[in-house]
């Protein structure tokens, strides 16, 4: 349980979050190469979310059950997105 564990260096993680935010903003400003820019933007967003979840929410100190509670709805949301893809693929 998180309460009994040592606290990560929260300020260092915050600095990483700001750096990733800067990278995402810089990628959005690059003219052309839209696919690369969007990939970088969402890769940095995912990295930021993981940093917050693992360190600020102490998920890395939690038992597997908490991981399961957190990840199952994420998977459901991904499944929802994937199953809706044929809608716009076949509409074109």
């Amino acid at each position: 349980m998180a309460t009994d564990k040592a606290h990560p260096n929260y300020v260092a993680i915050w600095v990483w979050l700001l750096a990733l935010m800067g990278i995402g903003l810089a990628a959005s400003a690059i003219p052309g190469a839209r696919v690369i820019a969007v990939t970088v933007i969402f890769a940095t967003a995912t990295a930021k979310a993981l940093l917050v979840a693992l360190n600020f929410m102490h998920l890395r100190f939690e038992p597997r059950l908490i991981y399961a509670i957190a990840l199952v709805p994420v998977l459901f949301a991904l499944v929802l997105a994937v199953t809706l893809v044929p809608d716009f693929v076949f509409r074109r």
Binding site: A70, P73, V74, F76, A77, L78, L80, A81, L84
Partner: peptide, 11 residues
């Protein structure tokens, strides 16, 4: 439940 709410919107 909140993940499902926002996840559905975002998807």
């Amino acid at each position: 439940s909140e993940i499902m709410l926002f996840g559905g919107l975002i998807a």
